[in-house]
Design a protein around this nucleic acid. Structure first.
Length: 337
DNA sequence: CATCCACCGGAACTTAGGGTTC
DNA sequence: GAACCCTAAGTTCCGGTGGATG
């Protein structure tokens, strides 16, 4: 097998990778670190609400500090992506399994009260920190109430918008009103350049990418580090597949879209179809989108969903910041961000 | 101003797939 | 193993909204 000449360590170019140092997020880092400090003395920590646009380091920082904390304190932790696990049952299921409690192998039939019973009886006294990522996507706020009833549990809530909790039950909002609120502004282009250079230094071989190419990626990322890292990974993989030893200028043309499409492992096939239509069409009306969707399904021999169902997928894409809409009713168009 | 039309989104209903119970 | 229950995903139905048209 031919050896890679571009990518030294692909793991460093994935969004799950936790870097050994965090750049341009000093204040958020120290605020969150302060919040988590009590865990070192076996005390429960404050609830935290972190919000900001996609790719502004929210998930990265929380994972970073949790792993740092685990080295210095005896805590248990769980991570839930509320997009993937949006129901009360799914959130609790993920937590219970992250905490390592034994479950019946039967995934679907485990009743809710069984999960609550496990939490009540098996949760130890040591501090337990639960990350609820993509909180905007949670369907049922009741699960937060469930979690708040355990004194040893504290929650790190991560959302794209500051308004994510506005629809929560007033009792829950009031319990959360003392949470630390941490805002994550978008990165500047030069911040993204620094982040990319860090990843490139550890993840790529020396001198395979030019500074001007890194700057180009940063410029196209719109302050979204996750997207920028995705682009870096994609063009690197692409160049490696072709057996090249440097990133060619030709690859720099429209990689943002490629990255967004490849990056969204959360998306279902229908949503990926929507994205690829928008990639081709730039701006498109709702009805035209559905017509194109039907054609695409026909081509791939996939059974299409109804127009109403597709609208729900579109709505999810909008709220996750992947696509946007413009104009009201008759003049409405959708486009990729 | 009345009417039409494209679009939006809530809600009830259906279907499918799985587990539990007896 | 039949009857039942639960959940997720998808469909059907429908009222509301607001720009366009005449």
């Amino acid at each position: 097998m031919e050896e890679n000449k571009i990518i030294k360590d692909i793991r460093i170019l994935t969004e799950d990778f936790i870097p050994s140092r965090i750049v341009h997020r000093e204040s958020q880092l120290s605020t969150l670190r302060d919040c988590l400090k009590p865990a070192m003395e076996n005390k429960s920590t404050r609830n935290v609400f972190m919000h900001g646009s996609p790719g502004t380091g929210k998930t990265c920082i929380s994972s970073y500090l949790i792993s740092e904390l685990k080295e210095n304190a005896d805590i248990s932790t769980a991570y839930v992506n509320c997009w993937k696990n949006s129901t009360r049952f799914n959130v609790l299921y993920k937590i219970v399994s992250d905490l390592g409690f034994n479950l019946s192998v039967h995934r679907k039939g485990t009743p809710l009260d069984e999960l609550l019973y496990i939490m009540e009886n098996k949760l130890s006294e040591k501090p337990c920190i639960i990350i609820l990522d993509e909180l905007d996507r949670i369907e049922n706020d009741r699960v937060i109430y469930d979690l708040l009833s355990f004194p040893q549990i504290s929650i790190i809530m991560i959302a794209n918008t500051e308004t994510a909790m506005y629809n929560f039950d007033t009792r829950i909002r009031s319990r959360l009103s003392s949470s630390e609120n941490i805002q994550f502004p978008s990165y500047s282009n030069s911040d993204i350049v620094d982040i990319l250079k860090d990843r490139a230094e550890w993840g790529l071989f020396p001198n395979v990418i030019k500074d001007s190419q890194v700057e180009k990626i940063a410029e196209m990322s719109g302050g979204d580090a996750r997207s920028a890292i995705g682009v870096l990974r994609n063009i690197s993989e692409h160049a490696d597949n072709k057996g090249l030893s440097k990133i060619p200028e030709k690859l720099m043309e429209k990689p943002v879209i490629i990255s967004k499409l490849k990056d969204m492992q959360n998306l279902n096939e229908n949503q990926k179809t929507i994205c690829s239509i928008l990639e081709r069409k730039n701006k498109i009306s709702p009805s035209e989108l559905y017509q194109n969707y039907l054609v695409a399904c026909e081509e791939c021999s996939i059974k299409p969903v109804t127009e109403r169902r597709l609208r729900t997928f579109v709505e999810e894409l909008i709220s996750s910041g992947i696509i946007s809409s413009e104009g009201n009713t008759k003049s409405r168009v959708y486009f990729l961000n």
